[in-house]
Design a protein around this nucleic acid. Sequence first.
DNA 1: GGTTCTTGGTGACATCGTCACCGAGGTCAG
DNA 2: CTGACCTCGGTGACGATGTCACCAAGAACC
Lengths: 224, 224
Amino acid sequence: MQIEDNWIERFQGLKRLPAELQEELVKGSQILSFPAGTQIFEPGQTADNLLLLMDGTVRVQQRSATGREVFLYRVHAGESCVLTTACMLALEDYSADGVAETDVTAVAIPRATFDDLAARSRDFRDFIFSAYSRRIIDLFTLIDDIVFQRMDVRLASRLLELADDTGTVHATHQVLGTELGTAREVVSRILGEFQRRRWIEQSRGEVRLISRAGLERLARSAGD
Amino acid sequence: MQIEDNWIERFQGLKRLPAELQEELVKGSQILSFPAGTQIFEPGQTADNLLLLMDGTVRVQQRSATGREVFLYRVHAGESCVLTTACMLALEDYSADGVAETDVTAVAIPRATFDDLAARSRDFRDFIFSAYSRRIIDLFTLIDDIVFQRMDVRLASRLLELADDTGTVHATHQVLGTELGTAREVVSRILGEFQRRRWIEQSRGEVRLISRAGLERLARSAGD
DNA sequence: GGTTCTTGGTGACATCGTCACCGAGGTCAG
DNA sequence: CTGACCTCGGTGACGATGTCACCAAGAACC
């Protein structure tokens, strides 16, 4: 990958740092790449870096005792993966793991640099606190959805989010089930219903959105 | 309430601070009391203090659009209420509110003191990060429970947690339902079943545990 | 071509959420 | 005291969802 001197530009919260700290941050960190599918972090592993995502997406999921998985949230380019921070500070055991969904480029900030910047810059601290808050809010929203939203509404929203430019979602029913914390069979049934309503067409491993309007009406129907 | 010079002793993560910073923290903060039932924070309100809980418990819950509530977590004495931090930094809108479950005594650290300490002490930063991590882990655990655990198992655990010294839980079915994010009727049914099995006895507004062993077996039956 | 794996479809059943309704007991004004 | 009203809890019916068992079609692999 290209040497990228000013990756800081990609992170809203870091652009405000004074030039000297930006320079120190660039010097004291390292750019890493992972191919799609890489396990970026997992329980029991002590990370010694804070990761900032430059390109790609990382899915963070919880593996339960029974072997099933729940999707927790997705880290996008321009965001940081605060779970690795928690891990870095060795504060708690956690049980979530992170997998690169696409090829991923990230900046790794080692603990020493992290500590130094956290001490010297309020903007940097705000950046980190903001990342934590963001995740907590995401989790609140997720819990609200799980408890109160009907599965068809949640699936409709998720299809709209995951669709590419051509209106196609590349995912098996199993994958969609994991995203929503439900069973494959439930996804199959609901997609069958969507198909009967002519909102989608299906083929092996993909869903084509025919009527976004229908899905959007359903997704909006309950408070969103 | 009593003037309490060394409340810092009650917070594990703060005891390590050097004496001068401890002194500054005590000077730059204020002790507050709230009677049981007080709304300590709520959406839309900008707090300008970080709260550390000295006595009592605070329940943090999410109010949904439909008016229902989900219990998210409980803040105990010796812990901090990081949601107010998120709010203090004015970083995100959140939709959770906090209610004093009992009479509550708390230390309020104003933003200026917070910033100063965060800049000067790594131990203080670790204390804050640790509080965030703790909440995130709690939420992971909650999501896991909601998605994978049977309601009878969750209710059994919760009864064991909430029981007082005499083995009595003072709560209506409605309150228990809110704790678990389920409906009163479901709680009534499951408690009815527990009663048939002679694990509990019920009267208006309270549940007496007769056989902790039975409840514990059930609670442990699924991974916990 | 045959075997095996992945994907998805389906029916039966258990659990859970929702709704409607009721009754028991407590509170309170008159 | 007593009737109106409220809170609490019990129950049946039904729909939504999770679980299980099983099957069929397509893909992959030898």
